[in-house]
Write a protein that binds this DNA or RNA. Structure first.
Lengths: 152, 152
DNA sequence: CCCAAATACATGTACATACATGTATTTAAA
DNA sequence: TTTAAATACATGTATGTACATGTATTTGGG
């Protein structure tokens, strides 16, 4: 569906303005599809993201700050997201040894397990709903990185 | 900044997967810049969006449902966003006349005023930070609309 | 005409963002 | 060495999303 239909207007100041809204809507669309897939696992998009980040270093632990650096949404309140994951026993939280200020986080077996099965679903989702070939995706990536050249 | 640096990884399954993350990040980046601009006006991104939508029909009123149809994020809880706008006296809420179930919303003079001045800032922002020319933006719009072809 | 279903909106809950502030620990300058 | 600044994280508040449910009004089949 074209963005004009999605938000029921064609009053864009120019093609660049339209691109801004198109990016915002596409992100919402993708996030919503992801949420629906994760619902069966009792995970949110953000919780899943944290689990994936932890998997990247597993079996090493990671401190909260390093997890935050790798989040897509940089204002994520990582300690609070970890609270939910601890409640569900998907990660363990411990005091840092080298640096007492740090809290170090590690995936549990349950966390690894739920991550493995949910990742299968998420990969399928991405393969199925993102209607782009590799070459088009490359062009898209270049344009998105160009649009962000002015780093606010 | 390339998405690899942003989320400190280069483990993408393929270029399409990377594009998905790039879209999510770019949307967050744009939304954050918008938030900062709107902060001076005491508005959130979503409140501003509702004001703009109302402006599209002004001086006509709009019902809550029609506002919702035009929102970028389709799960927005429009009644609640309107609550804040009513508190700030930027819009007026009235019982619908033709259909008693409806609530009709209209911009106030204060709403028109704050919308005018904030829109100047937002337009400047878009012109300044979105580093794309019209032709590139057109390509980007086409790719974003293509990626959404499978309407979840 | 009557009443069940549909519709429009409000409201409640869990979780998240955006941001300010508090607390404990480490670092580094005097 | 002592202590102020910086750092890492936790926590509090306002606002928003995602979704379920409640309430009032309208619609439509019998």
């Amino acid at each position: 569906m074209k963005i004009e239909q999605v938000i029921q207007t064609n009053k864009f100041r120019n093609e660049v303005h339209k691109a801004g809204l198109n990016i915002l809507y596409t992100a919402w669309w993708l996030k919503t599809a992801t949420y629906k897939e994760l619902k069966d696992f009792g995970l949110t998009h953000e919780q899943y993201n944290v689990l994936r980040i932890l998997k990247g270093k597993y079996p090493q632990e990671m401190c909260v700050k390093d997890i935050g650096y790798r989040m897509i949404e940089k204002n994520s309140n990582v300690p609070r997201i970890i609270d939910r994951l601890v409640d569900k026993k998907l990660v363990k939280r411990n005091q840092g040894e080298q640096d007492g200020r740090q809290t170090v986080i590690q995936l549990t077996q349950a966390g690894l397990k739920i991550l493995a099965s949910s990742t299968i679903k998420i990969n399928e989702l991405y393969d199925n709903i993102l209607s782009l070939n590799n070459k088009e995706a490359e062009t898209l990536n270049n344009l998105l990185e160009k649009i962000r050249e002015t780093e606010a």
